[in-house]
Amino acid sequence: MLRTRPWVPYLYVAPAIALLALIFAYPIVKVIDFSTRLIRGSTGPRVGTLNYRLVFEDPTFRDAAKHSALLLLAVPVLLFISVVVSVLLYERMRGWKLYRSILFIPYILAVPIVGIVASYLFSLNGVVNSILRGMGLDGLALDWLGSERLALWTVMAVIIWREVGFGIILFLARLLSMSEEPLEAARIDGASWWNRLRYVILPELRGTIEFYVVVASITMLAWVFAYVYTLTSGGPGTSTTILELYIYNQGLRNSLPGMASAVAVLLLGATTILIGIRFWFNSRRSDEEVTA
């Protein structure tokens, strides 16, 4: 057997580690460093935790955090629609391949296009309200994006409309890779559709569901800027301001990259926790499987 010095393997992987550090670790370290400075231009003096304190004192940040948290309500909706529709498609209803393509189309549209089109559709005198008025439903013709009460929910609906395609395809792919024998056995045993879903399909989808919930949650927290920017720019008032928009405003508009970095670090912490939960679920399931 070939014998080498103990540090030699580390030498071989060192270039890859250095590359990863440069690509991933350096920016994170830099953001954390920025969050402790009053940045003017490309650098600035250290201010300790001042940026974090200023962030928590800022009412706009509190509004933004609340709205980002509210957007997490879209996750169970996305999950429910994705699972139900993917199961229906899996049952190979007539024309299921066509439906699959149609349902995925919104997901391949560029978000800014979706945002701009939706902003026309949902304006007070836009297409949606014109249709409602045409149907005599004037009372439902609301100011979907111009009202503080409705704007965040309208934005959420647009996000769900576009993002749900990914969930459907993800779950459908998992279902199509699943062995059909358990389902067939359940059918022969006379299990109803609901029971097949509950006792056969959902357990099979468990890992995918965990993955999807984490990914969708991260999307809601850190990937919806383009929707908000194009649909409402955070208004009316602060009613649709989210953490990403707050970061953008502080970092680029208000010339306060330090505060923007502080919020980015907090957001990174939140998403890291979500990923941690995912790993925890994974390890717990592995333990259960070993025990079984």
Binding site: T60, D143, G146, S147, E148, G234, G235, P236, G237, T238, N249, R253, N254, S255
Partner: peptide
């Protein structure tokens, strides 16, 4: 200051008009 633009002027004008 842009902070005033984003957090005061922008918000006040939209909210008043709403």
């Amino acid at each position: 200051p842009t902070k005033f633009w984003t957090d005061a002027m922008f918000i006040a004008s939209q909210k008043i008009l709403a």
